[in-house]
């Protein structure tokens, strides 16, 4: 059956609800403005239709009052919607307290979704309802865009960088993930599902005792998943196997490089005096291009790990450093 309803996409997140309110308002006001302007135009076209070849027309080159009022009206209208949109957007991108973090890696043509407990799923995202979710996302190959229409949010994933997508689901249910940035042959098949569970079900799921349908549907990927370890454990494993500990301690002592203790989320001062926030992107960058942003008081001696760590392994190391904050 063909559906022709105008607005059939439910809203299932806080930003989705805000979007609906915003869009409904701007749609109504926009329609009034459009019908007003065009209605007048079409009315003129009939009212002042040519009667003879010698119709007299008045000479009205301008009318400053009308012009001023229309410019002023449009400016106010636009300003209100800009401020409204900016506030909603600000709320959407700002980090929130107590976020639940999940890593996402886009690749041609599926989504790898990694949880803190080390489990990785393909194209399936399971989140608790009414919690702030933060997706730390990157891409293995080309640009993708992680789009959940029911939540009215999307963000591109970029190879070699982290981007963030934040949302707060507020309805239990199953929703869609699309790739919205063109990425090649199977772009339109790069589709996943979001399962929003009640907070209790989600805890059960984390504990491995959830009995719903979902438990059978998820298929852990065998790809570099860390052998059943959590992300932090796998990160700690890497910390030892890659011998990071020879330069970086986890107890606050300073060796050749800065200690990981309390590092994540802190502000560090670089050689040259600029200060930057030690976030996911900074840690990734330091692994790939260690010479680029060296912390003040240390010499630039760290080798690069470009090409030696997978995106998943970088996520594990970031999780490990995060755990030491």
């Amino acid at each position: 059956m063909l559906s022709l309803s105008l607005n059939f996409l439910p809203s299932a997140s806080v930003s989705g609800d805000k979007f609906m309110l915003y869009f409904t308002t701007i749609f109504i006001i926009g329609t009034i403005l459009f019908v007003g302007t065009l209605g007048v135009g079409i009315y003129f076209a009939f009212k002042y239709k040519r009667k003879s070849d010698n119709d007299e027309t008045p000479y009205i080159p301008h009318n400053y009052l009308v012009e001023f009022l229309s410019v002023f009206g449009i400016s106010v209208w636009v300003a209100i919607f800009f401020i409204w949109g900016w506030r909603d957007y600000k709320d959407f991108i700002s980090p929130k307290m107590d976020e639940y973090e999940i890593n996402v890696i886009g690749q041609q043509w599926n989504w790898q979704i990694q949880y803190a407990n080390g489990k990785t799923f393909t194209n399936e995202l399971i989140v608790p309802v009414d919690r702030h979710i933060h997706l730390a996302m990157t891409s293995k190959d080309v640009l993708h865009s992680f789009f959940i229409p029911e939540f009215r949010v999307k963000m591109d994933t970029i190879p070699g960088q982290y981007t963030s997508l934040r949302f707060t689901p507020n309805k239990v249910g199953t929703y869609t993930i699309y790739c919205a940035e063109y990425c090649g042959t199977s772009h339109s098949k790069m589709i996943g599902k979001v399962y929003v569970l009640s907070q209790k079900d989600f805890q059960d799921w984390l504990d491995g005792v959830y009995q719903g349908e979902l438990a059978q549907e998820t298929k852990p990927s065998n790809q570099d998943s860390g052998n059943g370890m959590t992300l932090v454990e796998a990160g700690e494993h890497l910390y030892r196997s890659k011998t990071c500990y020879t330069c970086h301690t986890t107890n606050g002592d300073t060796l050749i490089g800065p200690s990981f203790k309390g590092l994540f989320g802190s502000e560090v001062e670089l050689i040259g005096g600029t200060k930057i926030l030690a976030d996911e992107n900074y840690i990734r960058e330091s692994l790939m291009d260690p010479m680029k942003k060296v912390v003040k008081g240390f010499s630039p001696t760290m080798p690069t790990y470009r090409g030696m760590l997978t995106d998943t392994e970088i996520n594990q190391i970031v999780a490990f450093i995060k755990a030491k904050r």
């Binding site: 979007f19 919607f81 800009f82 949109g85 957007y89 959407f92 999307k154 963000m155 940035e181 063109y182």
Partner: peptide, 11 residues
Amino acid sequence: GVLSADMHFHD
């Protein structure tokens, strides 16, 4: 052009 709406509309 509105930021919040474009998060949905983009692409």
